[in-house]
Amino acid sequence: MSLALHGPAAAEIIACKQESASIVSLTLRLSDRALADRFEFQPGQFNMLYLYGAGEIPVSISSDPSSPDPLVHTIRDVGRISHGLVRLRPGDRIGLRGPFGRGWPVEDACRRDVIVITGGLGCAPVIPVIDYVIQRRRDYGRLIIMQGVKHSDDLIWRARYDAWAEQPDTQVLLAADVGDRQWNGTVGPVTGLFKQAQLRTGNSMAFLCGPEPMIRACVQQLLEKGLPPDRIWISMERNMQCALGQCGHCQFGARFVCRDGPVFCYADIRHLFGRKGF
C-alpha cells in the first residue's frame, strides 16, 4: 500500500465546480510539493478532508489514479462538514490525510467484463475505475455502466457518460426515478436497467456503490443472473472519525470500513449485509 498521511497535510483548493445544486467538485493540491510527488492512490480509496478546527469527513477520490496531482473530490452538501467544504473557494486551505482503505480489485478484473452499478453520488468512487479500464481498454472485456438517480436533475457528469458511451464495447445505461422532459434514459429504479444490460455473468466482475437498499436489490439481480458472490464488490459508507481502525465508529461486524473497506467482497459480508444494526 502506498504512503498514507496519518496527520493532516495542508492542501489548497485550486478549482471548484458546481456540479448540481448540492454537489461540488473540489480540485486540490497538497501544499507540500514533496508529499504531492509521493502521493498515490488506488481506485476506490478515500481521503479524510479536514475543515480546520471544525471536523473532517471521508470523501472518495474521484479523479484518475494515474495522475494523482491535483486530486478531485466530489462532495454532496448533506450536513455540517460537507456544507463547509462545498462553500470553499480557490485559495482556501484544508487538511488532508489519506489515502485510506482498500480500493477496487481492478487488477483481478483484468480480462473480464466489468459491470459498474452506481446510485446517486455513489458514482464518485467508481469514476477512477472507469477511467482505469478505459485507459487499458484492451486488457478488459465489455464495460457496462449502470447509473441511477432520484431525479434527472441529480445526474452530474452527463458529458462524461456520453463520452464513455462512445468507447468500444461499452454500454452506458441511465435511470432516473423521476425524469424531466429532456430525459432520454429509463424512468424508474436502477434495477430496471438489467433488462437492457448485455451481461455475460460467466466472466464478469461487478463493482457497486450507492444507497444500501439499491445495492441490495442489484446484488440480488446479479446473483440471480449467475454472478458468483466472490465477484461482486461493494463500496460501503459508514460514519468515520479516525480512518485508522482505532475509534470503532465505522465498525461493520468484525471489520472496519476504513481499514478493511470501504470496498468489500460480497462473499465476505453477505451474512451481515442488509441486516438491521450493521
Partner: peptide
C-alpha cells in the same frame, strides 16, 4: 473555542 470559531468562520454550525 478554536473548534467553535473555525466552524463559524467556515459558515457551519459549531458542534
Amino acid at each position: 473555542v478554536t473548534a467553535t470559531l473555525r466552524s463559524l468562520l467556515a459558515g457551519i454550525t459549531p458542534l
